[in-house]
Design a protein around this nucleic acid. Sequence first.
DNA 1: GATTTAATTTACTTATTAGTAAGTATATTA
DNA 2: TAATATACTTACTAATAAGTAAATTAAATC
Lengths: 192, 192
Amino acid sequence: MSIRQATRRKILELGEDLMQKRGFNAFSYHHISSELGIKNAAIHYHFPSKESLGRQIIKNTHERFSKWISHPEHRVLPVAEQLDWLIKIYQYNLEKENRVCLIGSLATDYYTLPLSMQAGIRKLSADVQNWLAQLLEGGRQQGVLSFEGKSRDKALTILTSLAGSLQLARLLGNEMFHKVVEQIHLDLKLTY
Amino acid sequence: MSIRQATRRKILELGEDLMQKRGFNAFSYHHISSELGIKNAAIHYHFPSKESLGRQIIKNTHERFSKWISHPEHRVLPVAEQLDWLIKIYQYNLEKENRVCLIGSLATDYYTLPLSMQAGIRKLSADVQNWLAQLLEGGRQQGVLSFEGKSRDKALTILTSLAGSLQLARLLGNEMFHKVVEQIHLDLKLTY
DNA sequence: GATTTAATTTACTTATTAGTAAGTATATTA
DNA sequence: TAATATACTTACTAATAAGTAAATTAAATC
């Protein structure tokens, strides 16, 4: 693989960061090129259109998620630890200079996005939702957590809360994220 | 008042709508002027800068909220109905072609916003948070609802969930909003 | 070492953006 | 009805955006 594609990887990393910090419409190729010390046209070589860059960023995030949840080591972890893993992703974004999650960022931009990006982010959010619903259902059956209602609805409530708290943390301070996480735990009566 | 300021009001209405549908960076004066059948410069007459327009939209939303929560008729309503009123605001946005809430929209745009708008949206979100925390605390003391933990943390969990669900509803369908609302009610063990 | 492929720069284009200055029409008021 | 604000339009500017074509450099392969 050598040095080739190194710029491509840097573009993707920075693009992801910019999307989660500023949103898809509020970053330009110039943000990336100036940071990396290259020219705009170099980015167009790797990603002919901004849409293609956005698509790939969504794809990468989706693949990271899919690989992880299907990983043998991960699947045997206790429910509480799998939930913690999900929360750690959000916490990682919080600590990376208050990124919001990719889904939340693209959801507010949604109607301004190219159709291929809309489809990509829809698929990702559906997968996350399904995974968490299954995890909660399993946990309830095992008796390590408890909640009222359908596991799918509870999953949605938690996911929206996590996404929303990354956003509100920008306005109200980062401590509130941890309080929301604590509250989610309380609401689940989680036992470790 | 006559016909004067009618255009100004229409600009503010449309601006608010665009901010909640597309975000602050993804709408231009052209979106407004073409829709209203006027010229861009007419908007600049009423709002010299986009920042001044954005500021006023936040201010209006804040004033609507403040007026309502301090209204004598509203303050004597049962806790459950006051909570319903809050949820109805979100539902109204959902039904208005999937607007997201102003706070959520501006939170994802936050680092790209003029400082005056950042300050405005911070104040608004703090006020909403404080109001809901007090409402929940009162409700718990009255025994019409119950939850674990601090009322402030529970308020944050609910607010983030509502904001997040307007966003996720764009990706996963509007039914999920109602499910999240149902789940919030279940989690509060609310009695009417 | 020559050739081919990959990666990048230079130099553009076209479109859109917020914003301005000067002039014109429409009300309102003295 | 003349004077005066108010509410615009016309006609710009300057900046920034994404994207392209052609030339150039760097790297890998034959």
